[in-house]
Design a protein around this nucleic acid. Structure first.
Length: 804
DNA sequence: AGCACGCCGACT
DNA sequence: GTCGGCGTGCTC
């Protein structure tokens, strides 16, 4: 007899990161299952929790055990697979189990808490200032009293027992329902009602007769008004007499705006066909093989994905397709929807909470078979996964930056083992780690060397901006880029300009004293944004108006340096006043749907130039683009990160791939001050393998992945001295507890040494094999959680960090 | 995490 | 005496 539920409570804290036992009330014995959300009393408050296990007995003394107060789900929201996956995530990423559970669900299913004040006595007994609140209701939100500064009075009332405070657990997600009308099933019954109607109620009689012809059917009220030509009052009257009833029908919010035309599978090239065959073979054998699909830009990776998914669907299975971020989704999702129609769900950050919830339910209820989405879609609640795909697998957005710090690739591989299905990691520029694994046959390498339509790769020119400067060209455009743009504008072809910095200019500098205007909360210079004449911190969001004089020396000689997208836009207008420009960066795409809209404008030929940041580097596929310009290849090259070379190579290759994808030949112009850097030289040749070999060499020398694994421990505190002191303790602890062949670098200041008023230090751990590592880190975290956290120290452990 | 409990200094 | 500061400990 099962009576005890083991529950993970919604409290992210070290001492409560374990299941708590609760009694299942008798009426719910058959109702509560593993994976259900429940409301439970926890100490003095009520919290939400997840049932992770059912048991028939408990070690907890009976006087301590409390019953579950509410069941939030009749059907579990988490499968057994998810509960197991959560335990794995907890261990793998060192996070709280509750965080691992929450990350798998749409935010709509997470709890919201509200403190409510309940009236416990007669209204007259209460202080008049309080009593006014309880005129209409027995319970009032605590916030109301807070706002009116009545906390003292409230405290008095609690003491006297007139009121009581209780924490209410609320669900945010509501299923959107619309009201429909169901006609009574029995025509004779409606007839009876009709007989009882007054002869003068002509309209009601008319409606009753209409209803007799539609027994049991369901209509939207508007349909009835129109079809029976009656008004709402008449319908209301008949519903009251029982001839019909209102019902609630669940609807899904529609995140798709456009209709799509059905497309068929394209004919594959030999290379594509070979790749597909290996994948489908693995699917047939139910083999959890991981493929690395390395295909040059324009080689038709997406078509391979589509046909592999087609196969999964034919086998009665489901498929998950991950894409890096919203940038890819409009064009990509359209492509998926046009192939698989209504069987596709979409998940990305651009959807509202409600829309995400609806898409999630479509997956859970088996209404769709394919999900196309960003990182978190890897947790799609499918039960028979036949295939998982990560497109652009090298992208760092697949790594979540806050707890649980998981990598979607690792989760994908875990789920593929569970479901015995293959995983495809696809990229034109695979992450070094992935390519190395493919070379070691951990992954199966599939290569697409040629573009699908046999187009030549675009010709790439690297322009040395130092030479331009010597020749007296001080503008941000080289002579050849200007010429290229002029030609394309004349020929009515399209241009993509890429710049990886948003805003107007990168920093504001005083020419007299050399002060650079900095964020007051972070150790970062502020960026000038022209449209609202403000300086903005891109890390914490702080903004201020542009100072008229230097804040340090009051000099008026302050100048803007560096170049952002807004400034480039202005410069282009100066050069080509007739050019129609679409600018895409975080500032122009923050509104919902703006992304699609801007791409539509460009795609339909209403603009000549697409100017943008990172977000335009991927996935764009427009036939008329024949020129791609990279304004400065150096920006990403000189970041203090061991991956900066790899990132630059990837970025340049991706951007270059936007040109000449169809019939017209493409040209790429890369502007740089360091043309001799191997990442730029090899990007020009568009050869991945030479770059891979060269980069592997430097990783080997410097002791970085894939030769070593990394773990990062970051310490922060409001006070520099505290932060430095405890970072030192971390380093000491690690050095004395890890083996000698592990190198510990640091403590050093983090690349952003102050963020949101906290000073940041870090220790980097490089290791090849250190079975002791997780346990040592857990020990360290224990010390931090029991001791250091009280002193305001914050400690973060990131295994396999994507940015260091 | 959040909340109660408890112990200590400063005020009507 | 009472209020409110925050160190300590617990949550099935």
């Amino acid at each position: 007899m099962i009576r005890i539920a083991k529950v993970i409570v919604d409290v992210a804290a070290y001492p409560v990161d374990r299941p708590f036992d609760y009694l299942i009330p008798a009426d719910w014995h058959d109702l509560i299952e593993c994976g259900c959300r429940v409301k439970v009393p926890f100490g003095p408050r009520n919290v939400l929790g997840f049932v992770v296990e059912l048991a028939s007995e408990t070690d907890v003394p009976l006087d301590k055990i409390k019953p579950i107060t509410q069941v939030l789900d009749i059907e579990p929201v988490l499968t057994e697979e998810m509960l197991r996956l959560a335990k794995w995530l907890k261990k793998q990423t060192i996070c709280y189990e509750i965080d691992a559970l929450q990350v798998m669900l749409p935010s709509a299913l997470r709890a919201k808490y509200e403190k409510m004040v309940y009236l416990q006595a007669e209204l007259e007994q209460l202080d008049p200032s309080l009593a006014s609140f309880f005129q209409k209701s027995q319970k009032i939100n605590f916030k109301q009293f807070e706002k009116q500064e009545l906390l003292k009075e409230l405290k008095q009332a609690i003491k006297k027992g007139y009121v009581r405070i209780e924490n209410e657990v609320k669900q945010q997600g509501n299923i959107k329902e619309i009201r429909k009308v169901q006609i009574h099933v029995d025509a004779d019954y409606i007839d009876k009602i009709k007989q009882q109607l007054s002869k003068r109620a002509k309209k009601q009689i008319q409606l009753a007769e209409w209803m007799q012809n539609h027994c049991g059917e369901i209509f939207a009220p508007e349909e009835i008004y129109e079809q029976a030509s009656v008004t709402a009052t008449v319908l209301q009257a008949l519903i009251e007499s029982g001839a019909a009833q209102f019902i609630q029908e669940e609807v899904y919010r529609a995140p798709f705006t456009k209709d799509v035309v059905q497309t068929m599978a394209l004919r594959l090239t030999d290379e594509q066909d070979q790749a597909l065959n290996q994948i489908t073979a693995a699917m047939e054998q139910q083999h959890n093989e991981t493929f690395l699909l390395h295909g040059v830009t324009g080689s038709g990776k997406t078509e391979v994905y589509l046909q592999a998914i087609q196969q999964a669907l034919q086998d009665g299975k489901e498929a998950i397709m991950l894409v890096p971020e919203i940038s890819l989704t409009p064009q990509m999702t359209e492509r998926f929807r046009s192939r698989f129609g209504e069987l596709v769900a979409v998940m990305h950050s651009g959807l509202s909470v409600g829309e995400k919830y609806d898409e999630w339910r479509k997956i859970q209820q088996g209404k769709v078979k394919v999900v196309v989405g960003a990182r978190s879609a890897i947790f799609a609640p499918f039960q028979h996964i036949g295939l998982i795909i990560l497109d652009e697998e090298h992208e760092s957005t697949y790594k979540q930056e806050d707890a649980p710090r998981y990598h979607a690739r690792d989760v994908a591989i875990w789920r593929s083992e569970f479901h015995q299905c293959p995983v495809i990691l696809g990229s034109a520029t695979p992450a070094l780690e992935s390519f190395a694994r493919a070379k070691k046959n951990v992954y199966t390498l599939l290569t697409l060397k040629d573009r699908a339509k046999q187009q030549a790769l675009p010709s790439v020119t690297v322009v040395d901006m130092r030479e331009e400067l010597k020749l007296g060209n001080r503008s941000m455009f080289s002579t050849s880029l200007i010429e290229g743009m002029r030609e394309r504008l004349m020929r009515k072809e399209q241009i993509v300009l890429f710049l990886n910095r948003r805003g107007y200019s990168s920093f504001v500098l005083c020419r007299d004293c050399g002060t650079v205007v900095q964020c007051p909360n972070c150790d970062i210079s502020l960026t000038y944004h022209r449209y609202n004449e403000k300086l903005k911190c891109h890390y914490c969001g702080y903004d201020e108006y542009v100072p008229q004089s230097c804040p340090q020396c009051q000099s008026e000689h302050i100048r803007f340096f560096g170049t952002g997208t807004q400034k480039v836009e202005e410069e282009i207008y100066k050069l080509f006043p007739e050019a129609r420009i679409v600018r895409m960066d975080v500032d122009t795409t923050s509104q919902k749907g703006a992304h699609e809209q801007l791409l539509d404008i460009f795609g339909s030929g209403q603009a000549d130039i697409l100017l943008g940041t990172q977000m335009i580097a991927k996935g764009l596929d427009f036939p008329n683009i024949t020129l791609v310009g990279v304004l400065s290849a150096d920006t990403s090259l000189h970041l203090p990160d061991y991956r900066s070379g790899e990132r630059t190579f990837q970025l340049l290759t991706q951007v270059s791939g936007r040109a000449g994808r169809h019939d017209l030949p493409g040209e790429v112009i890369i502007q740089t001050y360091t043309p001799e850097h191997y990442a730029i030289e090899l990007a020009q040749e568009q050869q991945y393998e030479p770059f891979y070999l060269r980069e592997m060499q430097s990783r080997h020398q410097a002791g970085y992945p894939p030769y070593y694994y990394l773990a990062l421990v970051q310490v922060s505190h409001e006070d520099v001295i505290m932060a430095a002191e405890y970072a030192g303790r971390v380093a000491d602890y690690l050095r004395s507890n890890l083996s000698f062949n592990v190198s510990i670098i640091g403590p050093t200041t983090a690349s952003i040494s102050r963020l949101n008023n906290r000073y940041r230090y870090q220790c980097l751990i490089k290791y090849k094999r250190e079975p002791n590592l997780i346990d040592t880190l857990l020990q360290l975290i224990k010390i931090y959680r029991t001791d250091w956290s009280k002193k305001g120290i914050q400690l973060i452990v990131d295994l396999d960090p994507s940015v260091i």
